[in-house]
């Protein structure tokens, strides 16, 4: 069965310009998100995952620019829209929530007013109608006594509550796509569980599609249907979630899984990825991961592999899976005996 694709990003490139220097923060990101599903974008700091998300809504800082690629949302290329047109989509068809609930709300306005603003700008609701909807929304995201709460200022709420408010604001206009940029990273784990449950429930209830940006593979496993793994500004692997955990293909994905200390099983020795994350100002010429990859060959160091689509629908950016692979033909990235 062919699923309907709500968002298709192909070869997205976003750069920042510092004087004359171009910093390629996102340099070749492609993925697709079927309608009603959740896509996880996972990566470490500097991988470009947040910039990818901000690029979709064109919310990147002034010195940044989408320099290439397409972002097709329901068939419409978001990169080609006018400022006015993209504004009509923001907070309406596509909403976004952010990592820092403590600083993401305006301290000088009540939360009710901040939610109402979205309703007013996109649906032209008057104050009375708007207030009613605000109460509904606050109830929907599980905020007790919403009539009183809507008159409160952000500083009067806890971090978890503020993230609920952010979600209520994002849901105000029944978005088709919700982008959640590390929505629980700043929260305690018991509060994280509440928020993730809330997002999952709301998605089912409202039939939204979700992009979940996170560094936490646990969050990916629990909330996502598809996963794009990012490294050095690029997608290195795209898979259905169960496959990714059972059968990771890219050596970086394998490295991430092996580095992660788990609370549910005992691991004798972690297998970290050697070396450091490359600087965006000084990216390796070939495969971005080559300097840290235990399998890297001459080819990997000199030439950047393409993100290749396999028959099973997965995609991987690695020479090992190509005809041109010049290393050990029997190599297995998941070799349990491998030592570092």
């Amino acid at each position: 069965m062919k699923e309907e694709i709500i968002l298709e990003v192909s070869d997205l490139r976003t750069s920042f310009f510092d004087e004359d220097f171009e910093i390629k923060a996102v340099d070749g990101v492609s993925f697709e998100l079927p309608k009603g599903k959740t896509l996880g974008i996972v990566g470490e700091s500097g991988s470009g995952k947040s910039i990818t998300a901000l690029s979709i809504l064109r919310l990147i800082a002034k010195n940044g620019k989408v320099v290439g690629g397409e972002i097709l949302f329901n068939g419409k290329d978001l990169t080609k829209l006018s400022e006015r047109e993209i504004r009509d989509i923001r907070g309406n068809d596509i909403s976004m929530i952010f990592q820092e609930p403590m600083t993401s709300l305006n301290p000088v306005y009540t939360i009710g007013k901040q939610i109402y603003e979205a309703l007013k700008v996109h649906q032209g609701m008057d104050k009375k109608e708007g207030d009613k909807r605000v109460v509904e929304l606050l109830e929907l995201v599980g905020i007790p006594s919403p009539k009183q709460r809507m008159k409160q200022y952000p500083h009067e709420l806890s971090g978890g509550m503020r993230q609920r408010v952010m979600i209520a604001m994002a849901l105000a206009c029944n978005p088709k796509l919700l982008i959640a940029d590390e929505p629980t990273t700043a929260l305690d784990v018991t509060i994280q569980a509440q928020i993730l449950d809330l997002i999952n429930d709301l998605q089912e209830e409202l039939g939204m599609s979700v992009i979940m940006i996170t560094h936490d593979l646990g969050v990916v496993a629990e909330t996502c249907d598809y996963v794009a793994v990012m490294y050095g500004g690029q997608v290195v692997e795209y898979q259905e979630v169960k496959e990714l955990f059972k059968n990771p293909k890219h050596p970086y994905t394998v490295g991430l899984l092996n580095s992660m200390p788990r609370h549910d099983v005992d691991v004798d020795e972690l297998e970290p990825i050697k070396g450091n994350v490359p600087s965006v100002r000084n990216m390796p010429k070939g495969c971005r991961f080559a300097p840290r990859c235990p399998f890297a060959t001459e080819l990997c160091v000199t030439e950047l592999p393409e993100l290749d689509r396999k028959e099973d629908g997965s995609e991987v950016r690695c020479w090992i899976y190509s005809d041109r692979w010049d290393g050990d033909p029997e190599v297995s990235v998941r070799n349990e005996e491998r030592t570092t």
Partner: peptide, 26 residues
């Protein structure tokens, strides 16, 4: 450059509204 200005932008508000309502008061 604060986060809540980004939130306001993500909501789809006009730059003018963002400048005078959200930024100026702070």
């Amino acid at each position: 450059s604060q986060d809540y200005i980004r939130t306001a932008r993500a909501k789809g508000l006009k730059e003018r509204v963002i400048t005078y309502r959200h930024a100026l008061k702070n």
